[in-house]
Design a protein around this nucleic acid. Structure first.
Lengths: 117, 117
DNA sequence: TATTTGTACAACCAAATGGTTGTGTTTATA
DNA sequence: TATAAACACAACCATTTGGTTGTACAAATA
């Protein structure tokens, strides 16, 4: 779990927050996200495809919600879950940053070789 | 942890495998990956920037290795770690798949609206 | 109205996670 | 050669994770 520490006038407040990387770290949750990417579903509909108890899935749903990966709206007795796919941009951004650093590594090597001529 | 079950002639073999999503799920490991993306480092050099024991970092290094996210080569008494950035493609592929499903969702809605005319 | 459906909440559990400290070994270096 | 550096291995610990079962309740439905 990520812990952010914000400096405050009267001291430090620590806020624990689940992040998107945690949301997609579990294979079951990744399947749930793919299902919801195709359209909103209630919890019972999500459970259908899994060989797992409703409560286990409900816990995953809870995690996904806390990570901001899905939104939930009440419709009668149903809890309709909708994926917030845009949130995955953060993951791609991080990977892109990694790749950029990686590529710059070779540029530096090239510069070194250029200077060595 | 992911468990893959492969059907075999003489029954089932279950193989436990850490995956790349687990590698990047921890914020400390993400920082380590970014550091290594800029060039190979030994464990002591990685530890330098963290307010954490060497052993804790060594455990993260172990996880990253098991996930195939880094390779380690022995150089004298040093363990030199190198990032395998290409492995992150799997993450991007998964996100891309999610986005594709998401976009198809709207295409289906469009088709529905077209047919309703 | 009686029953089924969709869900929440709580207790419980084993295993994994993310950290610690302590000890020992090999490899450089003063 | 003595010491320091880089590391491995093990034991330990608290918390989190990912699952279970049981109970209860409100909303549809027969």
């Amino acid at each position: 779990m990520v812990v952010f520490i914000f400096e405050q006038p009267f001291g430090c407040i620590m806020i624990e927050r689940r992040d998107i990387f945690q949301a997609i770290s579990d294979p079951t949750r990744r399947v749930i996200i793919h299902k919801l990417a195709q359209g909103p579903l209630n919890i019972a509909q999500i459970v259908e495809d899994f060989d797992m108890s409703r409560q286990a899935i409900a816990k995953h749903i809870k995690v996904l919600k806390e990570c901001g990966m899905i939104s939930i709206t009440q419709q009668g007795r149903e809890q309709v879950c909708e994926a917030k796919i845009d949130q995955l941009d953060e993951v791609v951004d991080w990977v892109t940053k990694s790749r950029t650093l990686w590529n710059q590594r070779f540029e530096k090597l090239d510069q070194f070789l250029q200077n060595s001529k």
